[in-house]
């Protein structure tokens, strides 16, 4: 991993206690030993099925969840040991765009106040300066005319427009790093591309790093430079998006790609290989490789005992599977 990374996690573990009455009866291991790095001006897609911990990982990178162990470096500073006050200062350099544009905007604020709020909170600029910045941000996310949209309430806007407001709010503090948590999954297909194009434009203009959390491989391919596949709280494969998607190496990645519906009518009767079973419970995940109960290449006595390390399997490519053991050297 490059030293040039802006955000980097080291053996990050985030457990949530399961409470019953007064005692803690277990822990949900939402993120369990994740090493991830995101370079400057890079877009990393974090892909996984629902409940695999990708959103939790995204929230942890923003300092919104306290990890149980491990480190999160942002521009060389470990977020996990910062006080709440210092964390607030760091958060000014980050932004977030959530999945649900209907829930992520305060319905009792006007668009102007929603976008202005981060500036007010962080005491940036005078009133006039802020006004200028807000209108500029609205123009940047293509809410034209900005003055017109600024006076609207969220309920007067469409889903796409709301998501643009959310983006404007995320970029108004000129962040270096933006977490976008499934930003297009609730939008119409026609608007998705526009939003993703907008992200790309913003990235080009301001040199922002993106963590693009999604379960949609198609948009990940469209938007990201690098991809990280997550399964049951762990990252199983990382690499350049195009390479990973065209030549998946981890059995789970392969299964994911196999599950993409094939638009070719001639293949309509071909049975697709879908891994049997369901994702494991994060309270009590399987021993060894988390994917082993569903894996077609399951090796008795190995996969269910040892945790597979990350193998370097190519240029910038890593996969956590014992299948690569003979081919490559340990990272």
């Amino acid at each position: 991993m490059t030293t040039e990374s802006l955000v980097r996690t080291e053996e990050l573990r985030i457990y949530f206690p399961v409470r019953k009455f007064f005692g803690t009866v277990g822990e949900v291991k939402a993120v369990d030993g994740v090493n991830l790095s995101i370079g400057r001006k890079e877009t990393v897609a974090l892909v996984g099925e629902s409940g695999c911990g990708k959103t939790t990982l995204g929230r942890a990178l923003l300092g919104l969840v306290k990890p149980k162990s491990g480190k999160i470096f942002f521009d060389g500073t470990d977020l996990t040991i910062l006080s709440e006050r210092e964390l607030k200062l760091m958060r000014r350099r980050m932004g977030v765009v959530f999945q649900d544009p209907y829930a992520s905007l305060n319905p009792s604020f006007t668009v102007y106040r929603i976008v202005e709020e981060p500036l007010v909170v962080n005491k940036i600029g005078s009133k006039e300066e802020r006004r200028e910045m807000v209108l500029k941000a609205l123009e940047e996310v293509k809410l034209n005319p900005a003055e017109f949209f600024a006076s609207k309430y969220p309920h007067m806007l469409s889903g796409g427009q709301r998501q643009r407001v959310a983006i404007a709010r995320a970029i108004i503090t000129k962040p270096e790093f933006v977490v976008t948590d499934e930003p297009v999954s609730m939008l119409d297909a026609s608007i998705r591309v526009e939003i993703l194009l907008l992200f790309r434009e913003i990235q080009k203009k301001h040199g922002v790093s993106f963590l693009y959390i999604t379960h949609d491989l198609a948009t990940a391919k469209y938007f990201s430079d690098r991809i990280a596949i997550m399964y049951a709280g762990r990252i199983v494969e990382t690499g350049p998006t195009k390479a990973v998607l065209s030549e998946p190496l981890h059995p789970y990645t392969q299964a994911l790609i196999d599950a993409i519906p094939d638009p070719d009518p001639s293949n309509r009767f071909v049975m697709r290989k879908i891994p049997p079973g369901q994702p494991p419970s994060l309270v009590n995940p399987p021993k060894g490789c988390r994917f082993h109960p569903r894996c077609p290449f399951f090796m008795q006595g190995k996969c269910d005992v040892l945790e597979p390390p990350m193998y370097r399997v190519g240029v910038e490519r890593f996969s956590a599977c014992f299948l690569h053991e003979e081919k490559v050297t340990i990272k």
Binding site: R59, L62, L64, K88, L89, R91, R92, M94, G95, V96, F98, Q99, D100, A103, S104, L105, N106, E117, P118, V121, N122, A166, R169, T173
Partner: peptide, 21 residues
């Protein structure tokens, strides 16, 4: 709700979130 999470993310403190959001 996500807008509260967003408010936390851009650094709003508890009094501000409670009173304004």
């Amino acid at each position: 709700s996500q807008y509260i999470e967003a408010a936390k993310a851009f650094g709003a403190g508890a009094p501000r979130i409670i009173l304004l959001h």
